[in-house]
Amino acid sequence: MENELYKEHILNHYRNPRNKYALTGAGVVGKEINALCGDEIILYAHADEDGVVTTMSFTGEGCAISQAAASLFTEYAKGKRIKELQEMTHADVERLLGISLSTVRARCALLPVKALGNRISK
């Protein structure tokens, strides 16, 4: 795993985040705040009756790591079960982002996962 945190694809997702909007009529909405920095991410998703994500989006501001993580997460989520997504670990998000993360920065990257875990279904 590369030691460089701000690799080009991370900066790319930070500058041009994918799926960054509030999904209207989302069946699933979840929010998480990073207590350390106050950054907040809200996740929105549509899922079918088996709990498989069909669409996912996010809103909120944050650091390059949390924004890139949210952007990549919403892309990755398509076709995955919510249950499996919300159980993603430090190692899983490292794989998703393609970078290694310290304990502190892993909290930034796990923000979208935690937000999904806090979901309320509508």
């Binding site: 945190l5 701000y6 350390l36 920095c37 106050g38 950054d39 944050g62 650091c63 390059a64 790591i65 920065r105 930034c108």
Partner: peptide
């Protein structure tokens, strides 16, 4: 264009320690 934590992280890679965040002063932020 850069989040304070990202700036602190880049400084940290230069072996420079600074604080980034709301500094426990949300009313001031």
């Amino acid at each position: 264009g850069a989040h304070p934590h990202d700036v602190a992280e880049i400084l940290s890679r230069e072996n420079i320690a600074v604080r980034a965040g709301h500094h426990c002063a949300l009313p001031l932020m």
